[in-house]
Amino acid sequence: MSIQHFRVALIPFFAAFCLPVFAHPETLVKVKDAEDQLGARVGYIELDLNSGKILESFRPEERFPMMSTFKVLLCGAVLSRVDAGQEQLGRRIHYSQNDLVEYSPVTEKHLTDGMTVRELCSAAITMSDNTAANLLLTTIGGPKELTAFLHNMGDHVTRLDRWEPELNEAIPNDERDTTMPAAMATTLRKLLTGELLTLASRQQLIDWMEADKVAGPLLRSALPAGWFIADKSGAGERGSRGIIAALGPDGKPSRIVVIYTTGSQATMDERNRQIAEIGASLIKHW
């Protein structure tokens, strides 16, 4: 067993022997301040990774656009098919120029040779490549099948209805392509620590998230040296922004954090800054 596999296998073990965790309302004060600064709703939840206990939450059962955070769930569904012998990570998928959609920095470079399922998941999570996500959605049967996968996990809230990039439209009061912070946090925890996926697939999923290259201005910008984070960000229309993450000190994750916002007129930089400040408060009061 590799060191990384050992780390993920012992996530519940280490967490069980940690000192009790206590909620700190100071972080919620910052979440509410972010709402004021952005002029928009902000949803927040913080779960203990081992027990699933909610440590703090704000608007945990209000719907927010998922945006690209759905790509972690998508690759979880792909990995479940791999575990069941219905898919192979090494299978190569070929596609054409007509398949390319807006923001496809990886797939646009491989029109000639195609990409493997493993490479597509890596591109979808680490670079948020939209064509990679659409190609992977095709392998599982489309958005409705991802929703069905989530329902089978016990998540009857999260739903995907459309493809990239239309799913980022974020129309107010439109339930399409949305989740709730509580539902997303619980589902992410199941994917990373539950028995739904094999140990190898859980490790692969967290490795992809740990290698995320496009979430630097968010929670990662607030992390002290030595902290662990595996995350996936999302951005959408109407001032929408979000991030889902597993993080913790001492090089291992111990909490799940989900943050979503929508309806702001603020710039992307300002949305990023507010999420980073929430992260800084979380870490300060850990």
Rank of each mutant, 00 (worst) to 15 (best):
I283E: 05
S254D: 13
G141N: 06
I140Q: 13
P181A: 14
M180N: 13
S281C: 15
N50D: 10
V257N: 03
L192N: 02
Y44V: 06
W163F: 07
L282H: 02
G90H: 15
G39A: 09
T131S: 11
G39F: 15
D99V: 06
S104R: 04
W208G: 01
A185Y: 00
E87D: 14
T69V: 04
T116D: 08
R241Y: 03
A276P: 02
A266D: 11
A246Q: 07
R118C: 14
K53P: 03
T262N: 08
N50E: 08
T138K: 15
G43C: 03
R189W: 06
V101H: 06
F70K: 02
K30N: 06
I93C: 05
A34D: 02
R220E: 03
E164K: 00
L74G: 03
P181I: 04
D212S: 12
E62S: 07
G251C: 10
W286E: 02
V157M: 08
K30M: 13
C121K: 00
S57E: 07
G239M: 00
A77S: 11
N272P: 02
M153E: 06
L196M: 14
S96R: 09
M184F: 08
E270D: 15
G114K: 05
L167G: 02
L49P: 05
K190Y: 15
P172W: 10
M180Q: 09
R159N: 13
T126V: 07
E108D: 14
N98W: 08
D99W: 14
I171Y: 15
E210Q: 15
D161P: 02
M180E: 08
A215P: 05
A182K: 12
W163S: 08
A132Y: 00
P253C: 08
A77T: 06
G248N: 03
I206D: 04
G248I: 01
I140V: 09
N168F: 02
M180P: 03
S122L: 13
M115Q: 08
R220G: 04
A225D: 13
Q88R: 14
F64S: 00
N168Q: 10
G239H: 04
L111I: 14
A230T: 01
E119V: 02
P172E: 13
M184G: 00
I243N: 01
A84G: 10
E175G: 11
P249W: 05
L199A: 12
W286M: 14
E61W: 09
C121E: 01
E56N: 10
Y260D: 01
Q274T: 07
R91W: 04
I278T: 03
L218I: 05
I283F: 15
D129F: 02
E210S: 13
G154D: 09
G239A: 05
V101I: 12
W163I: 06
G43A: 07
T198F: 07
E237C: 14
A266M: 13
L38Y: 09
S80G: 11
L111T: 07
V117G: 02
T198Q: 09
R162S: 09
I125D: 01
R41P: 13
M115G: 04
V82I: 12
L199G: 09
I206M: 15
R92N: 11
Q37W: 08
R220I: 03
L196T: 11
E270V: 10
M209F: 03
Q274K: 09
L38E: 13
R220V: 03
H24C: 09
L205N: 00
E61L: 10
Q274W: 08
A235K: 03
T27I: 14
V72P: 09
S104E: 01
L74P: 01
T27Q: 12
G236V: 00
V72A: 08
L38W: 06
R91V: 05
R241W: 02
N98S: 07
Q204R: 08
A276K: 15
I206F: 06
A211D: 15
